[in-house]
Each structure stands twice: as C-alpha cells, then as structure tokens.
C-alpha cells in the first residue's frame, strides 16, 4: 500500500495539477478584498470569512475537487496507464483507496491554503480584531469532511469516463443547483453538494461543532459517502481494462 502511495504521489507531483490548489484560495483572497457588508458582527474577521467562505465553499471547493479527481485518473486513461498499473502486483482495492486518500489529502491542503489566504487578507486590510481560531478550524475541517463524499463520486465518475469533460460536467450539474438549494429550509440539509457550504458557514448554527446538526452530518454526509465510495470501489473492482 505504501509503495503504491509513493508511486501515485510521484506521478501526481510531476504534473501541474498541484498548482490548481492555489486557485480557490486566491479567489477567496480576491473576493474578501472586494466584499463589503455589515452583518451585525463585531469581529471584522467573521465578516470577511462569511463573505469569502460562501463563494469558496459553494463553488470553487467542489469544482476544483472534481478537477483534481479527474486528473488523478486522466493520466491513467490517456495512454493505457490503467492496464499497465493493474497488471503489476497490486490489488485494485489498494489502487482505488490510494487515489482516494491522495485526493482527500490535496483537498485538505487546499483548505489550509485557503486558511492562509484569509490570514493574508486580514494582514492586507489591517484587521486588528483577534482571529477567531476556534471557529475557523471547525469550518476548515468541516468543509473538508463535507467534501469527502464528493471526492468519492468524482473519483468514481473519473474512473468510468475516459473523457475528462464528462465527470467535470456531472460535477457542475450537481454543484450549481446548490446555490439555490441551500436557501431551502426543506431540501438544503439533504443536498450533498450543499454540505461544504453549510459546514463552513460560520454564521450558521453556532451551537453545533460543525455548524450543522450531528444527525445531518451522519445521514447526509456519511450516507452519501458510503454510497459514493463503495459504488466507486465496486465499479473499479469489476472494471475491464
């Protein structure tokens, strides 16, 4: 497993995908710069974070996640990588798990970069209020957890389609509606693509550790993770290459 991980990481770091991870944090930085608003919050950081988090978590986090998952399969599809890799002494389960963990790791990296960009934003704007670390950590981790089922689905789709555009389109089709769905009290909590926003929404239900009720976390995030992860796992086990 470790040797597969080393090989996968080697292939990945030699590509330019890593640089994609900087895009959402940079956009967050930009949006934070231009955003203005008064949401009746005393701490300047919170105002900035609420503004920047919304676009980041609703759009760029899920979209870039899909692109990264697509890329980690793309170079296998391109010139017969799958058949070369799977004819080596590896099990398919381990290859699948390795790729999943790797994407998850990259998403976590992106979350931390985003955190960094927010700190930079504050420095640029000269915010002197104390940085709300405790809340911010919860949102950074929460956004990551909420993305884990989406990573699984994107990986599954990227393994099916040789064409890079197909899984990306699927991702867009499911991501864009969340702009509307999260506003619905009835459907918002059940829409997997809306969860990264809800779990990063530090202005949300502050009583819960992850800004959403635990039942919602388990049912929606946990449930969709199980469906997507094992769906992809079983598909990959049977995939003819």
């Amino acid at each position: 497993m470790l040797s597969i991980m080393r090989s996968e990481w080697y292939k990945l770091r030699k590509s330019w995908v890593i640089w994609l991870l900087f895009i959402p944090p940079l956009i967050g930085l930009f949006l934070g710069q231009i955003s203005m608003g008064d949401i009746g919050e005393a701490n300047q950081w919170i105002i900035k974070l609420v503004m920047a988090n919304a676009t980041y978590a609703l759009l760029f986090l899920p979209l870039i996640t899909g692109v990264v998952a697509g890329f980690i399969c793309r170079y296998e599809h391109q010139e017969g990588g799958w058949k070369q890799l799977l004819a080596l002494p590896v099990t398919r389960g381990k290859v699948y798990l390795t790729k999943y963990i790797l994407v998850l790791f990259l998403v976590l990296t992106m979350q931390l970069l985003y955190l960094g960009s927010m700190l930079i934003l504050g420095a640029i704007q000269g915010i002197t209020d104390p940085f709300p670390w405790e809340i911010v950590w919860r949102s950074i981790l929460g956004g990551w957890v909420a993305t884990s089922p989406l990573v699984a689905l994107q990986l599954w789709m990227s393994m099916i389609f040789k064409n890079f555009a197909a899984p990306f389109s699927i991702n867009v089709i499911f991501t864009l509606p969340s702009l509307l769905v999260i506003n619905s009290e009835r459907f918002g909590p059940y829409y997997p693509w809306g969860q990264p926003f809800l779990m990063m929404n530090i202005g949300g239900e502050g009583d819960n550790f992850f800004f959403i009720p635990w039942e919602q976390l388990l049912m929606v995030v946990g449930g969709s993770f199980i469906v997507f992860f094992f769906g992809g796992y079983l598909y990959f086990q049977r995939k003819a290459v």
Partner: peptide
C-alpha cells in the same frame, strides 16, 4: 510476469 498489452502504455507527462 511482465507485460505489454496492445499499444504501449506510458504516462505522457513523465
């Protein structure tokens, strides 16, 4: 076992 199936397999970015 070593193998080469159909067209050569490789990673183009490497």
């Amino acid at each position: 076992v070593g193998s080469l199936v159909e067209n050569p397999s490789y990673y183009p970015h490497l």
